[in-house]
């Protein structure tokens, strides 16, 4: 049995929990304090507003313990806002948050809500068949370096990548019925334990 945490401060928390309930051998818990952080095998940073979630991480003393756990190998996956929290560089602002992933992200890279879109893409790392993707005021990855490896890109913009125990996506698999990304992350956790 795997205990998977979903950072429970703001955003698409219920959506991730709903997906996880459909997967066998997984217990999902919302993480809101440092104690719960010690009880999980992996953590999802959901979509939402990165400035809000980042601020709450700092105020409620979750930022430093979480950063340390990720650096020690805790599998973590950031979707949209979660990806911004993981990045070492954010193009349109000076402040960073967890500062653990060798990527530079561009916030609201596609524009306002009128520029939000759906599409699909085949990413061989995840599956040989196309995966539906939902982009909501999404960021994209401008640059990667070090150990970060590209998983998928659209129009030369990287929208999914992995760096050892860290996974990041610009889009929201939790808003679709497709379980493949969540299952991929669970495989990452199984390899880790």
């Amino acid at each position: 049995m795997i205990t998977l945490g979903v950072l429970g401060l703001q955003g698409s928390i219920a959506e991730h929990m709903n997906v996880l309930q459909q997967i066998k051998d997984v217990t999902a818990v919302a993480v809101k304090n440092p104690q719960t952080l010690t009880q999980i095998d992996g953590l999802i940073l959901p979509g939402g507003e990165s400035t809000t979630i980042g601020k709450l991480l700092k105020i409620f003393d979750l930022l430093e313990p979480l950063k340390e756990m990720i650096n020690k190998g805790l599998p973590v996956w950031g979707t949209c806002a979660g990806m911004i929290l993981l990045a070492k560089k954010i193009s349109n602002q000076s402040e960073t948050y967890l500062n653990v992933m060798d990527i530079e992200v561009c916030r609201n890279g596609y524009g306002s809500q009128l520029d939000s879109f759906n599409t699909q893409l085949t990413m061989p790392t995840i599956s040989s068949l196309p995966i539906p993707l939902v982009f909501i005021r999404a960021p994209y990855i401008k640059n990667i370096w070090g150990d970060a490896k590209m998983i998928g890109q659209i129009d030369k913009r990287i929208i999914a990548c992995q760096q050892k125990n860290i996974l990041a996506t610009s889009f929201h698999p939790e808003l679709t019925d497709d379980l493949r990304f969540h299952k991929y992350f669970i495989e990452m956790i199984k390899k880790n334990t």
Binding site: Q10, I13, G47, G48, Q113, S116, N118, I136, R137
Partner: peptide, 18 residues
């Protein structure tokens, strides 16, 4: 329909916020 879904999705991203 697709646009409406995306618009509902943005509201979902605001949940738990002010």
């Amino acid at each position: 329909n697709e646009r409406y879904e995306l618009n509902k999705n943005l509201a979902q991203m605001l949940k738990g916020g002010v």
